[in-house]
């Protein structure tokens, strides 16, 4: 009887019809470019971008010999770790605030979205001028408050560039993180709080023993997505760091761009190799993070 088989085939075909557009999209904008990236990383290109042949893993070997790599990798660790930790901490407080009822809450919630809605390049340019030594408003404001005694060249002084960039990174990461955590807070049922109150738990105790554990899924999502976003963030570092020579304040992402187009290396193949390494790194980082978190969960 061919009947049932035909039906099943028709179902498969129908499923494919429904899935088709998204499969095409994923194939076209994710898989194909990824394959091309790997292919490019195994090839040699001239300064002009002309393909010059297959070189196997030589680009990867050369990448490891780049003097700047250690500095850039360290910058990236600091950049990602500090932004994610600080963002999550501030967002916890913000989400708590936004979860309370107070007059004007809707306005505050809307206002929080603004840094998220604005284009990253615009925000970064804005901060370039805020930080500027001669034209910026940050120095006058700080000096009128009495700190510091001398104006600071925030984006030119080697000791302050990274901090200045991280501050912007935190600023633009806050809205998303706060909303994820706020959504998490709102899924916590009111009766567990009531139970805690009946048991006579203090506010801090309630927060630690009730809110935080129940917020864990939201915290996980916020942390993982932020790690990925922040690691891959290009516009902030690129815009705020564009006046600085060398690779002293680059992260893996801007370093990759500089290798391809801006430094004397001008090497698309080498940059592609770094691109592949970046993807691998972020995957490993996320897996390690998730493992660590689950392991603790099991222990508790």
């Amino acid at each position: 009887m061919p009947g049932p088989r035909r039906t099943r085939r028709a179902t498969d075909w129908q499923a494919l019809l429904w899935l088709g557009p998204s499969l095409l999209l994923i194939g076209g904008v994710v898989l194909y470019p990824a394959a091309r990236l790997v292919q490019a990383s195994l090839s040699q290109y001239s300064v002009t971008g002309l393909y010059q042949g297959w070189v196997g893993l030589r680009n990867y070997a050369r990448l490891l010999r780049q003097e700047a790599l250690a500095t850039v990798a360290m910058n990236t660790v600091v950049w990602v770790a500090v932004i994610v930790v600080v963002t999550v901490l501030i967002s916890l407080a913000l989400a708590q605030l936004l979860d309370r009822r107070f007059p004007g809450r809707r306005l505050v919630r809307w206002a929080l979205i603004v840094p998220w809605a604005a284009s990253l390049i615009m925000t970064s340019k804005l901060f370039v001028w805020i930080y500027d030594y001669y034209f910026g408003i940050l120095n006058p404001v700080l000096q009128s408050l009495g700190v510091p005694a001398q104006p600071v060249d925030w984006l030119g002084d080697d000791s302050t560039v990274m901090g200045a960039m991280i501050a912007v990174g935190v600023f633009v990461s806050l809205p998303f993180t706060s909303y994820v955590l706020l959504a998490g807070l709102q899924t916590i049922p009111a009766d567990v709080y009531e139970a805690a109150r009946v048991d006579g738990a203090s506010a801090w105790r309630t927060y630690r023993s009730v809110t935080l554990p129940l917020l864990r899924p939201a915290l996980l999502v916020a942390a993982v997505l932020n790690i990925i976003y922040v690691f891959n963030s290009f516009p902030i570092v690129w815009t705020l760091n564009d006046r600085n020579p060398g690779f002293g304040h680059d992260t893996m992402i801007t370093y990759m761009y500089k290798i391809a187009f801006k430094s004397s290396l001008r090497d698309v193949g080498l940059a592609a190799a770094l691109g592949v390494v970046n993807v691998a790194l972020i995957l490993v980082a996320v897996i390690v993070y998730l493992r660590t978190v689950r392991w603790r969960e099991a222990e508790a």
Binding site: V47, N244, P245, G246, S263
Partner: peptide, 17 residues
């Protein structure tokens, strides 16, 4: 000189140091 295309970028990135 074809090397100039790289030298130029090298100078741009590093002479400020």
């Amino acid at each position: 000189d074809p090397a100039w295309d790289k030298v130029k970028l090298d100078v741009q990135q590093n002479i400020g140091l």
